[in-house]
Design a protein around this nucleic acid. Sequence first.
DNA 1: GGTCACCGACCGACCGCCCGGTATGTTGGC
DNA 2: GCCAACATACCGGGCGGTCGGTCGGTGACC
Lengths: 209, 209
Amino acid sequence: MTEQDRPRVPRGQARDRIVAAATDLFARLGYEATTTRQIVEAAQVTKGALYHWFSSKEELLTSIYRELLAEQTARLETIAAADGPADVRLHRAVSDLFAHMDEHAEPLTVWARSMHLVAGEHAAAVRAERRRYQHLFQDLVEEGQKAGAFRPDVPASVITNTFLSSVVQIHRWFRSQGPLTRRELGEQMVSLFLDGVRGTALTPQLPEY
Amino acid sequence: MTEQDRPRVPRGQARDRIVAAATDLFARLGYEATTTRQIVEAAQVTKGALYHWFSSKEELLTSIYRELLAEQTARLETIAAADGPADVRLHRAVSDLFAHMDEHAEPLTVWARSMHLVAGEHAAAVRAERRRYQHLFQDLVEEGQKAGAFRPDVPASVITNTFLSSVVQIHRWFRSQGPLTRRELGEQMVSLFLDGVRGTALTPQLPEY
DNA sequence: GGTCACCGACCGACCGCCCGGTATGTTGGC
DNA sequence: GCCAACATACCGGGCGGTCGGTCGGTGACC
């Protein structure tokens, strides 16, 4: 054993490196197509480190998403609990969602592609958290309907699912090298969401807050 | 070898049985999580039959989708080439899409979940066909924009991708045991698409055709 | 303030299963 | 009799996961 090949990576960084490498690989190759060997190689650690921090490959996947989801839920909660009419709060929430997606596009891609593979106890926990987010959003829509700002003839659940579906799928076609930034796309999608393809420039600018 | 365990399945049905079993399993478990053994077991055939008709597991996956996509494209072509204003044709196309999805929800689920896994030559071929479909749809949107029926401030590509994304994702949340039929949901989503959440009951009924 | 027991963090060789795919045999219809 | 249409037995590899061990820090105790 020579001296030079000893200190690979500073101690205490392994977990973060594993999560970062796994997120990147999962997003690019897909969860199932990524092997644990690729992950530890990219993270410059070993299998021992991986299974020291995570009990299974699946737990690694779910923890990536739970972290993202927890942050999104917290943000939505704050915005939903604020003052002001429901439609304005919804507009803020959606804009905030897009802004946040700028920084976390990768884990969202991972989840959009691999959520259906998670089963058992992990699935139940994550699904519960996901439902919580969905409900927060849906409640805002319902509030807007009761206040007369949104159409009442389409159920809030349909509205919510339709919109969130199109958001989750953005990674499939949006390229950051394209003519639009993710935030610009966000504003356009909000406008489509609110007024549809027939709507003219009805959507007002967000009031400062 | 006894006589009775010989004729398992009538000849000439193997391919169809394999496709049906694979579609069901892929939709329920995901492509990667489904093994070729599960497929042949469910189809009541053997590995020999599978690899007689398909050169690989991946070709089986792509052929499922290409079959569906070819049919959808043909339908869209017919509708798009018909007479009448672009917005009416688009409305017809979308309604037809939902009607057709009634019968083919499973293969669409398969593809929505597993398209990102297809690589190499298969990917190129399928992606080209997929682009053809997308372009047909997008051309209709652009026509509508030029005719003044649709808003010009959002690019047709954004409109197309946003809408098709939400359609592809329906399987994630829609349950046929729920209060809505898939066709009813379709009408609501078309209405949302055209007029947004703020729109009142602006969307007219489809003229008979 | 030395030392020693202990502990979490991490290493890396190893395992057994099971997966996609194949090579060869068999059969029924034309 | 010959060829598609299958059946059956089998393989090599790579996968997720394991397990005994190492190493650096930390604190209790004298």
